[in-house]
Design a protein around this nucleic acid. Sequence first.
DNA 1: ATAGGTGCAAAAGGTTTGCAATCAA
DNA 2: TTGATTGCAAACCTTTTGCACCTAT
Lengths: 150, 150
Amino acid sequence: MDIPQELRKLGLKATLPRLRVLQLFQETKSKHLSADDVYRLLHDEHIDMGLATVYRVLMQFADAGILIRRHFESVASVFELNEGGHHDHLICTNCGRMEEFLDAEIEQRQEAVAAERNFVLHEHSLSLYGFCGDCAASIKPTAARKLRRT
Amino acid sequence: MDIPQELRKLGLKATLPRLRVLQLFQETKSKHLSADDVYRLLHDEHIDMGLATVYRVLMQFADAGILIRRHFESVASVFELNEGGHHDHLICTNCGRMEEFLDAEIEQRQEAVAAERNFVLHEHSLSLYGFCGDCAASIKPTAARKLRRT
DNA sequence: ATAGGTGCAAAAGGTTTGCAATCAA
DNA sequence: TTGATTGCAAACCTTTTGCACCTAT
């Protein structure tokens, strides 16, 4: 089925702004974009969508389950395509590289911890922060100390 | 050693605002307070510390390692006393109850995941969201669906 | 005495909302 | 046609900053 159809099925009109935003995420799979990133990228293509509309579209897509909204330690939240499978993130605090992972044992232990405390789990967020191999190799220990951020 | 001494040792003058803020966290151990919470609580005691000062003091304490700043899914970040041991959080999205936990196996697997991908880990954040026993028992499935939030 | 700390007000992000104009169905 | 959607500007919320005044050491 084509994209406009899919949108309509979700009760969303297939407007140009929506198609463009969706396209942007699909072109760059598994990319994490903030509202401002999307706004900026579209302007680079001379598509003048208002920032408010970008936010509205991203939110609608997140509500519809097309996108997932993530809150990493940075101020702005980012969105990524929802490709079905849950995953967690490993983030290089120096270069920003982001890798996704899924560890069955961690998932299992999370459920166990929740069960021990009588909680019914709905979701969770796990992010590991550090230096990727490249950055760890190229950064001096003293410099690394300076770069550490909350 | 007394608190003013400890502050001076960290290079911070023992001013009234600082002592009050610290006292607030110590009175209410393992409590998570946002800058606005602190501001409001102090005003309730008729201590008119400016919000800007609250932020500055919280930040200095976080830098000094007295407090830890946390970013949960809510907009505002919260601070808690740094009592030494690392821990993760289990949060009830209905009543706000928050429990701390530490699972050796999860910690270990995180290191393993990072190592597999050649990352040097600096820190991580793991938060489990769901309903605590009380809330799960008192909330109807349909109501529960409505309450689910990103 | 003086470097550091404070309050206030203003500014700076990120995000949301009100409203009149516009567009997909 | 008509309700949904958009752009713009203004509002909001959290956090930061500039600056003149104040205070712990």
